[in-house]
């Protein structure tokens, strides 16, 4: 059983927190990751900032540009992962990003470095199943999982292909992109998204989390009622961006994560 498998096996909804590593600095991202874990996040998505984040809305796109300007990138994100893993042996760590930084590094080398840094799984937003076989294999051989994505536009053929790949192992969970759009979209119908996540879980046989648009206790509760977990990304990045000092940013992150944790916990009991 992998580390993330154990997290999903607990009797609680899973809270996943996305950080754009390098915004406002790589060191502070590590500090904010600690804060997330302390406040109740179970899994960290450590975002590798990319110059052309076409699946992201303006909040994360701008954070990515700031992070790159501050020395962020694949190497810095792996450094952050190593630092977090040293202190948090049980936390789930997902390396989250776009394909080009991994491809340019070399898939085998990137997978090996991820394993060495204590990363549990890779999530590559612009690498659909068909073109991702080589990276999946490179990761799997080094004990690193890969997280497939499904979207509201995904029909039965995509779900079936995901199920086939998950059956081969190395898929700790599935990320359901709950909105047809980019990250940070406000239009989320959290309850419907959670219901769809539950259907997908039944079809694929792996835990399914809901991402895109989870920004409040209410939405976390509504989505987590039927999903295995929820992801917070844009709301967290925005909270960090709006904090004027490191202490204010830590406090904002802590408050938001505690709110979402409470929402996810309420989903279990209602």
């Amino acid at each position: 059983m992998s580390r993330i498998d154990r997290i999903f096996a607990r009797d609680a909804k899973v809270l996943v927190a996305y950080l754009c590593v390098g915004d406002p600095s790589v060191e502070e991202s590590v500090e904010l990751a600690r804060t997330c874990l302390r406040a109740g996040a179970d899994v960290l998505e450590l975002g590798v900032p990319f110059s052309d984040p076409t699946a992201d809305g303006p909040v994360i796109a701008r954070a990515s540009q700031r992070a790159i300007a501050n020395g962020g990138g694949l190497a810095a994100t792996l450094r952050a992962a190593r630092a977090i893993r040293a202190e948090a042996p049980d936390a789930g760590i997902v390396l989250f990003g776009y394909y080009n930084p991994l491809f340019v590094r070399g898939e085998a080398r990137a997978a090996a470095e991820a394993a060495e840094a204590g990363v549990d799984a890779l999530l590559v937003v612009d690498l659909p199943l068909e073109d991702g076989a080589a990276l999946r294999k490179a990761a799997f051989e080094r004990g690193v999982g890969t997280v497939p994505l499904l979207a509201p536009t995904s029909r039965a053929d995509r779900v079936a292909a995901t199920r086939q790949i998950a059956a081969g192992g190395g898929v700790p969970f599935v990320y359901y992109v709950s909105v047809t759009g980019v990250t940070g979209t406000a239009a989320l119908q959290a309850g419907e998204a959670g219901a769809r996540a539950s259907e997908l879980k039944a079809q694929i046989g792996r835990p399914v989390v809901v991402g895109f648009g989870i920004d409040s206790r209410d939405k976390a509760r509504a989505a987590a009622r039927q999903a295995d977990g929820v992801v917070v990304g844009t709301a967290l990045v925005r909270a960090i961006q709006q904090g004027p000092t490191p202490a204010a940013r830590r406090a904002a992150v802590e408050n938001l994560i505690r709110e979402l944790r409470a929402g996810a916990d309420e989903a279990r009991t209602c």
């Binding site: 076409t54 659909p128 294999k137 079936a160 086939q164 192992g169």
Partner: peptide, 24 residues
Amino acid sequence: QSSAPGAAPVAGYFGPFGGRFVAE
């Protein structure tokens, strides 16, 4: 996993170039 249905390379390659690297 690499031999599973749905995992075969899609059409649309020119030698090693091309493919379909987009959000799901």
